[in-house]
Design a protein around this nucleic acid. Sequence first.
DNA 1: ACACTGATAATCT
DNA 2: GATTATCAGTGTA
Length: 230
Amino acid sequence: VVAAGVPGRRIGRRSLAGDVLGIAPALLGFVVEHRTEDGVVAVRLTEVEAYAGLDDPASHAFRGPTARTRVMFGPPGRLYVYFSYGMHWCANVVCGPDGTASAVLLRAGEVVRGAALATARRPACRRSVDLARGPARLCSALGIGGEHDGIDLLARASPIRLLAPSTAVDAGRIGTGPRVGIRAAADRPWRYFLDGEETVSAYRPIADRRATGAGIADAIRQTGHRDRSR
DNA sequence: ACACTGATAATCT
DNA sequence: GATTATCAGTGTA
């Protein structure tokens, strides 16, 4: 647990300009802090995933820049926020040089400051370890939404900042595995987490909706679709 | 603890 | 019209 009052260190933009597969695990232990008029909430990252832009079929940026993915193609150190499953916001740290589109999804963390405010933002949450356990929960706890897409995480005056911990995490504690909830490139072990931390989210393969309450016609149609996509 | 499923809308085909 | 970088609720153990 990060002691209250210990300020995180600011980092240089160049430290996020390299290979996303090196940056993603290095961000474990970093703190994301959001200051609003309601107060401050800070989350220490315990789980992230790497997305490699044009080189990664699972990345939103795989097919090139669109209105949604424009921020990912910009300079590193900005926040890419997307809307998921009709109700949730999720956030990424944009990495790599300007013009490329890799990013690190913030999958889970431990609330280290502002637990009361985070709890107020997450009324359905029963256990404190679940406050930011999951990418959409993390955004809820921090008060991050679509209005924050593109915000610079490295500027001193930004309301949302990414800060380095006072002591780096032990590299031996970093676990890896396949990314959660994706179908494309599901074999790439680009999820990184702090092994043994309670706030790491449970691994779940993508939901298979073929067998859910569908009629025979639906089952046939959807099975056909699955076969076509192979 | 783990499995299953409906909710819900932007995005892309 | 299908898919989706998810969550909370409900049910089973």
